[in-house]
């Protein structure tokens, strides 16, 4: 076991209420980004009924044990933690096996997170969708949370429910990530704006991720965008979230308000009118 143990590791729940808004993608990319910044990071897949954090990280073939075996003492924690090959600061721990849907309780979660926390700076918990038992189990050990939503009415409404639950549980701070932002639609007010969402949910914004095809490409490959210094907008957004979590002051720019530089606009105009390059 590592000699260095951190005094108070950050234990962060990544949740949304609504399904499919980008929790697992955020967990994978944030995990890699934090690890690259030198933080010992464990990502815990609490969505074990429909687990896919392993797929996004490209670790699906390396899972032998889960938290369940660790708690049953049929294996050691080190055996169950799947280290990422290219980024050894990152390890994945699946909470359980899809065939064993019933085992996990809030107490189990607290025990396993306490064990993991002894050897990590960051523990990211990928929460299942919904606000029922899966959420309650996943939230049981969380100290702070990131709520991720998209600028759509149903996602924001569900996020609001989750925020209410986190507040009553005393989880704090709770920060917001706005995902799948389409700057053009926002600029023409055909989408909820960044300010609209932060006003409504009254949470501090820790990140803005634009809609980005590269997210799909990277998922296909099992290589998170943050792994290879990919310069895509989403990659940068995930890296910035990691830096902000560590307390760095990284300015947040609303992409629907960002005006492109004069030169870029001029070049674009020339390109359009001449069709040259």
């Amino acid at each position: 076991m590592d000699a260095v143990t951190s005094a108070s590791p950050r234990i962060i729940l990544i949740c949304s209420g609504k399904g499919g808004v980008g929790k697992t993608t955020l967990t994978a990319n944030l995990g890699i980004a934090l690890a690259r910044l030198g933080e010992r990071t464990v990502v815990l897949d609490a969505d074990f009924g429909l687990r896919n954090l392993d797929l996004l990280l490209g670790l699906e073939n390396r899972i032998v044990y889960t938290a369940q075996e660790v708690l049953a003492e049929t294996c050691r924690l080190e055996q169950a933690l799947v280290k990422h090959k290219q980024e050894p600061n990152l390890a994945l721990l699946p909470a359980g096996n899809p065939r064993m849907l019933e085992w996990l309780t809030p107490e189990d979660m607290q025990r396993i997170v306490a064990m993991v926390a002894e050897r990590a700076d960051y523990v990211l918990i990928d929460c299942p969708a919904g606000i029922e038992d899966g959420f309650k189990n996943a939230a049981a050990a969380a100290r702070e949370a990131i709520v991720i939503t998209t600028p759509e009415v149903s996602a924001v409404r569900d996020a609001d429910r989750v925020i209410g639950l986190l507040n009553t549980r005393g989880v704090a701070p709770v920060q917001l990530v706005l995902n799948r932002v389409r700057p053009k639609m926002m600029a023409s007010q055909e989408m909820l704006g960044v300010d609209d969402v932060t006003d409504i949910l009254a949470l501090p914004l820790v990140g803005l991720v634009v809609e980005d095809e590269q997210v799909i490409v990277s998922t296909n490959r099992g290589e998170p965008l943050t792994l290879n210094g990919n310069g895509s907008p989403a990659a940068k957004a995930y890296q910035n979230i990691a830096r902000r979590l560590r307390g760095e002051d990284v300015p947040l720019e609303d992409p629907s308000k960002a005006r492109r530089g004069l030169r870029a606009r001029l070049m674009n105009k020339i390109r359009k009118t001449t069709g040259l390059f």
């Binding site: 409404r157 926002m186 055909e190 409504i200």
Partner: peptide
């Protein structure tokens, strides 16, 4: 604009 409608509807439902 639909974004404005979305905001108003959300505020009410929330």
């Amino acid at each position: 604009p639909s974004g404005t409608m979305a905001k108003e509807r959300l505020q009410l439902v929330l």
